[in-house]
Nucleic acid binder design. Sequence first.
DNA 1: AAAATTCTCAACCGCAATATA
DNA 2: CTATATTGCGGTTGAGAATTT
Length: 307
Amino acid sequence: MGRPPCCDKSNVKRGLWTAEEDAKILAYVASHGVGNWTLVPQKAGLNRCGKSCRLRWTNYLRPDLKHEGFTAEEEDYIIELHRAVGSRWSLIAKQLPGRTDNDVKNYWNTKLKKKLVSMGIDPITHKPISRVVTDCHNIINLTTQAASYNRLRDQASLTMSNPCFFPSAPCFSDFNCQALMQTYVPQSPTASSSSSSCTVNQPVESFPASTAQVYSFSWIDHVLQDNWCINDDLDQSQGGFSDMPVSAGLKLGEADAEKSKTVGATCNPSKAYSSSCSVKTFVDNILDRDFEIMSDCPRLLDESFEY
DNA sequence: AAAATTCTCAACCGCAATATA
DNA sequence: CTATATTGCGGTTGAGAATTT
């Protein structure tokens, strides 16, 4: 058998602590020290769960805690640490004497997040929001290309006698770029009526221009760990992936009737795209290979081809 | 002045890792 | 070995305070 339950959860007090309850905890800790919190309610004469007592001590009653507001230095340090480790509040709080993880977390959620957004910095990635929005466009374009590629791949599987040896292009279904962009990009007049409570919505154009050039790496690096779209040349002046001619991929996947004309012609869509932008993506490589195969075996694209 | 809305932050929830009867 | 408690943590909630309408 295991241990007996620490308390009758349905029969203990919840909610805000009174000064009397605080005094009982303080008196208990003064005479017994910090130890087995399960025994504290019983020994201190409290009708509370031990977990609740521990939380009250840890987050409020501990004598080494600061109860005044955060200083500018602490603010900067939290932002720096959050940039480095993300929302690991206990780790961040350990670097700030007298602050708890709950303190830091609350301060971040109520003040610092808004402060960063007002400065044009995305509080998740710590990159300029203008860059995040651009990268979201890029990811959406890449997703469109991947879908086109997968369609072509599926069609090829149906027409080839051998199983298709191309892998599926990865998708970004877990990463909702549309939702993220709705956070930052101003809503159209027709759509804005349903999102009036969003306090972080503001036009991208209103961010200070200086913040847009702070970082040299694309935010896309954060979400795309594989090598199918790494792009060292991507920058705002080039337009990055947002200038990518999506139609290059779509032509291959959609226009069945145009297949032989498009692919069989001298213009290789993926190569045309590569020449206008020095990016060489996973999709490009697949399309290049696809072009080679189609060139070698043009009959594959002939709708009258039978196997 | 009153009602509505927004903000703050203490407290709770639930999960994962670890400890223990 | 198993079942359950304990601890630590990040995410979420909601009551009261502050601010706006």
